[in-house]
């Protein structure tokens, strides 16, 4: 069996390469993510951010290279992953609450705990009043909240989020960013957060990976060592945001 090169990294990405036919999307990418880290990934449209997460959760095959989680090849059956997709995905035949509880069902969370966590999480994301509606009766932003709630509800060891708040209004986005940070701190989970929004990346992340256009490599890594709660107007916040923006101007 394949084994990682050691180290206590939560995620190790080794020479990850992905081609779609002749199109080279990910070009020998390498990076590590430490246990309990909240890392944001920013990169231009179409550079392969979604593709990377799909490789990680085995939704697509990799062309070459490895992804290790806790030293073994990434596998959603073995690892307690949760994924918030870029496009909201809810099962249309389940009500809002049933959609949220779904992940816990698959992962075999005991009935009683399921109900408690459901209650908590529905309140957290503001879906309590609409719990019994079907997805075709709720707005697009609520669909995305269903996905976020479903992911949080399984207390994931590793949370993968693909531009989760892109569709939400600013108020809800700020609120859920704070919730994400709070959950991450309480659950000690490792979070990989993809976003287009630089301010959002600086606000939530401990470290930001900036990707290049296709064929994609990691252009730079920016450490965000600001205390929390963070303030958008803090001069150091503004400085880091400027720094990441500069890296992105290169595109």
């Amino acid at each position: 069996m394949e084994q990682s090169a050691a180290s206590n990294a939560k995620i190790e990405v080794r020479n990850l390469t992905k081609k779609f036919g002749d199109l080279l999307v990910l070009d020998r990418i390498n990076f590590n993510i430490k246990k309990g880290e909240l890392v944001a990934i920013v990169g231009p449209t179409g550079c392969g951010k979604t593709t990377f997460l799909n490789c990680m959760s085995k939704l697509t095959d990799t062309t070459d290279g490895d992804i290790f989680i806790d030293g073994v090849p990434a596998d959603p059956v073995k690892h307690n992953l949760a994924f918030v997709f870029q496009e909201p995905t809810a099962l249309p035949w389940r009500t809002v609450a049933q959609n949220v509880v779904y992940g816990m069902e698959v992962k075999g969370v005991p009935e009683k705990e399921r109900a408690e966590r459901l209650e908590y999480i529905l309140n957290l994301v503001g879906l309590k009043d609409t719990a019994d509606l079907y997805p075709n009766q709720v707005s697009a932003s609520m669909m995305q909240r269903i996905a976020v709630a479903r992911a949080f509800a399984v207390n994931p060891d590793l949370l993968l989020m693909d531009e989760p708040y892109g569709q939400l209004d600013v108020k809800l986005r700020f609120y859920l960013e704070d919730e994400l940070v709070k959950l991450w701190q309480t659950l000690n989970s490792t979070v990989l957060f993809i976003t287009h929004n630089i301010e959002e990346a600086v606000y939530v992340a401990e470290r930001i990976l900036v990707l290049t256009p296709k064929p994609t490599k990691v252009r730079a890594e920016v450490i965000v060592d600001l205390p929390r709660p963070r303030n958008f107007l803090d001069p150091r916040f503004v400085e880091i945001r400027r720094q990441v923006t500069e890296l992105i101007r290169w595109w």
Partner: peptide, 11 residues
């Protein structure tokens, strides 16, 4: 996409 919902949960 509906299958993906199940797959990423380890279904």
């Amino acid at each position: 996409e509906l299958y993906d919902v199940v797959r990423v949960m380890g279904g």
